[in-house]
């Protein structure tokens, strides 16, 4: 049976599946039986994330610990807010990187912007994977 012939069998409650899909790139697809695609997605997102860190990219965080500042962020600093969403989109890797002090970003590094690009694109790709896993789990996508 090839990847595409497998039914969209849901083994976990949908919210749990989506959270797992967010935490680990490709895990949602793996749990739905799409192993080839899961492996490809995992490699692509993880390689992008690791390259981003290696290139001194920055994982975005709210500028202040103030909750009000965070809530007003979409209006006051929309680009940073979008970058924050993309950064958090990396799931577990985002939290691990922060825990070990990686992803602080070195603005003066030659590849800083490229590092950001890799980190943000990997986060956005992982967010798209959540949507794709949702479509497969709910039967909107049959492969």
């Amino acid at each position: 049976m090839t990847d595409r012939d497998k039914p969209a069998g849901l083994v976990l409650p949908l919210p749990v599946l989506l959270v797992l899909a967010w935490l680990v790139p490709g895990l949602g697809h793996a749990l739905l039986g799409r192993r080839l695609r899961a492996a490809v997605f995992f490699v692509v997102v993880v390689v992008g994330f690791v390259l981003g860190l290696a290139l001194d990219g920055e994982l975005m965080l709210p500028a202040s610990g103030d909750a009000l500042a965070f809530l007003s962020m979409p209006a006051s600093d929309p680009l940073r807010f979008l970058a924050l969403i993309a950064s958090v989109g990396n799931g577990l890797m985002f939290f691990i990187a922060h825990a070990v002090g990686a992803g602080q970003g070195t603005v003066t590094a030659a590849a800083y912007e490229f590092g950001n690009t890799f980190l943000l694109t990997s986060g956005m790709m992982n967010l798209l994977l959540i949507l794709d896993a949702h479509d497969i789990a709910t039967g909107k996508k049959d492969w």
């Binding site: 695609r37 490809v40 997605f41 692509v44 997102v45 390689v47 992008g48 694109t121 790709m125 798209l128 994977l129 794709d132």
Partner: peptide
């Protein structure tokens, strides 16, 4: 990386 991702997606 982006091209591989979207071709499989």
């Amino acid at each position: 990386l982006i091209a591989v991702f979207f071709s499989f997606l």
